[in-house]
């Protein structure tokens, strides 16, 4: 790692201020960021630690939505009674991110801000049509994700939480990349009051995306069989690497969608 200053603000306002310094960067668990910095792939002047801000930690399960604050760990989400009851698919997703040690440090805010194309959380945020809360505004999931490692966040903007609507049913099906344990392809399928949403991570070169054909088919018939009759999405634009060529990933999108619906 290159040298950097470490800043530990006690409030969101202080964090925003600290992040206004040139090349300052937030750290919210650091389970992706620290390995990246170890490879010297970034050179922040300062790391602003969001995990010590009391206001950013915690879960509030309401009657029609669940709020997960930005610096809440995956392990906390996975073990939260309220989340398990309201959105079991979300709790299960959190319970299978990375490994137990990653889940003890990694946070939802860090994951959503980074928007790794193979991360699990973006699938849930988009699949449930959640709202990303920041220090300055609320952003609908459909507007938030803008491609691999790209989001609607402005320079220095902090994810303070994610508000998930409680669906009728939902589940996440993950096909794990055997080395990194990220998603080779992961699908979050949700049946909500407003309709069906199907979000796919790990597969596309454009990052997390909604599979419109599956949503349409499932809206009229929420069943794995409805997915079975669909063609897999086009391989064009899917990620290709040693673990999965574009056609294999496209195929997995369909299989994982079926399995998510079956599990929901």
């Amino acid at each position: 790692m290159y040298a950097f200053d470490y800043v530990k603000p006690a409030s969101v306002a202080d964090a925003v201020k600290a992040l206004s310094a040139e090349d300052a960067q937030p750290i919210s668990g650091g389970q992706t960021l620290i390995p990246t910095l170890k490879q010297r792939l970034g050179q922040p002047s300062a790391l602003v630690d969001l995990t010590k801000i009391a206001d950013l930690v915690g879960i509030e399960a309401g009657s029609d939505s669940v709020l997960v604050k930005g610096a809440t760990t995956h392990a906390a989400v996975a073990a939260h009674e309220g989340v398990m009851q309201a959105i079991p698919g979300l709790a299960k997703l959190a319970a299978h991110i990375g490994d137990p040690q990653v889940r003890n440090r990694g946070t939802i805010g860090g994951s959503v801000a980074n928007n790794d194309p193979a991360a699990c959380y973006p699938a849930a945020v988009l699949g449930l049509g959640a709202t990303v809360l920041t220090d300055r505004r609320e952003i609908a999931a459909d507007d938030y994700f803008q491609g691999m490692f790209t989001t609607a966040l402005e320079e220095g903007e902090i994810v303070t939480g994610v508000r998930f609507p409680i669906p009728e049913k939902s589940a996440y099906a993950k096909f794990v990349q055997p080395a990194s344990r990220f998603a080779l392809t992961g699908v979050y399928a949700a049946k909500l009051k407003g309709g069906v949403r199907v979000a796919v991570t790990g597969a596309s070169e454009s990052g997390v995306f909604r599979w419109a054909e599956a949503e349409a088919a499932l809206a009229s018939n929420w069943s794995p069989e409805a997915v079975e009759t669909l063609a897999a999405p086009a391989a064009d634009g899917m990620i290709g690497d040693i673990h999965g060529a574009p056609d294999y990933r496209a195929h997995l999108v369909k299989v994982m969608t079926k399995r998510a619906v079956a599990a929901a």
């Binding site: 080395a179 690497d241 040693i242």
Partner: peptide, 22 residues
């Protein structure tokens, strides 16, 4: 699981535990 491969330019495609599946 395991495969140490190189692309046509000789760049390792599984050069860490992110891609080499133990």
């Amino acid at each position: 699981l395991e495969h140490c491969t190189f692309d046509a330019d000789g760049q390792p495609q599984a050069g860490s535990y992110m891609d080499y599946a133990m």
